[in-house]
Design a protein around this nucleic acid. Structure first.
Lengths: 168, 168
DNA sequence: GCAATCTCGGATATTCCTTGTCCTGGTTAT
DNA sequence: ATAACCAGGACAAGGAATATCCGAGATTGC
């Protein structure tokens, strides 16, 4: 058995992927899109997808309308919704690296007043996460839709729009 | 109950923090440092810390020597060990975002030959992770040690070295 | 106005991973 | 030879992510 470290690196819930694809889909619809319909489109469990859509709703990215013709729709143009906002809405705003304040333990523990400033390790990790966040903040849902359309030579968004319009 | 999304964001195992602090400690010692000693210094469970140190050893960052005066020591200068290498050694090299190829499912599923290129969502997340990785690659363990020393006005590394030297 | 129907929303189980411990075997210095 | 250390795996416990269900509320059509 020559397997190397199998432990997983920092992990992102699959809800992030679902949420982003759903945002792209919603951006192509005129009216609201229901959770059941989005689940069918992407082939994912409806009840679970609903949970992530609710998170988007709580974050104010989409607005939900009840009733027979209800569903989810954007509150603002897709060009003004960044990927970061969607990711943080679904997975929460907490950083990946959580400092345990290891320097305050053990025989060489630092006094509390010496720990006002975060430690160098924590700062290094925070810097990297800021770079990650800025990269995601620079991409909008509209950008994603445009790129997907380019990848498919213009057919993807057309097919998507027609599917969303038909078969209510 | 007016609580907002409490779900956790992408998560990094606490072994990352331990591994980085241990690397800083090892860098300040002349001889090898044993796992039990590192655990005592940082106030963490020895058996569990040993697991992460073994990961560092497998990755070739440190070299372990058995025997009464054994322990862990760097294989190369601390200035040539990046934070990224430590993080990936402990937590694995896999990306945080795992594309499920959602576009190949549902009624508008794309054909396999149209999925050779990763989808736009996956590319966006990969770009952000690259930025994260580059930020971590630009910081070395020696840098960390230097910054910790600055934070403590020069006492931290001195105290650390003397603790490592004494009380074998 | 009223009922039916469809929607969201939160509370609830289940599975999996992370955390943590322990034990056996192998290697080195005294 | 003995003692001290590392390496790796088996194993248990806790918690988070996954997945599902049922109730509350709103809109449509009559």
């Amino acid at each position: 058995m020559s397997e190397i470290a199998r432990v997983l690196v920092m992990k992102l819930s699959n809800g992030v992927e679902w949420g982003l694809h759903c945002c792209v889909s919603i951006s192509q619809s005129d009216g609201p899109v229901s959770a059941a319909r989005l689940a069918e489109l992407h082939g994912v469990p409806p009840s679970y997808l609903a949970k992530h859509l609710q998170a988007l709703s709580r974050a104010g990215i989409v607005r939900s309308t009840p009733g027979p013709v209800g569903g989810y729709a954007f509150t603002r143009p897709a060009a003004e919704v960044s990927v970061l906002q969607v990711v943080q809405a679904v997975d929460g705003p907490e950083p990946a690296f959580r400092c345990t304040e290891i320097r305050r333990r053990g025989p060489l523990a630092l006094s509390p007043e010496r720990c006002e400033k975060p430690c160098a390790v924590s700062r290094a990790m925070a810097t990297a996460e800021t770079a990650w966040r800025e990269a995601l903040a620079g991409i909008s849902v509209a950008d994603l839709a445009g790129r997907i359309d380019q990848d498919s030579s213009g057919t993807a968004m057309r097919d998507l729009r027609s599917w969303l319009a038909g078969a209510p």
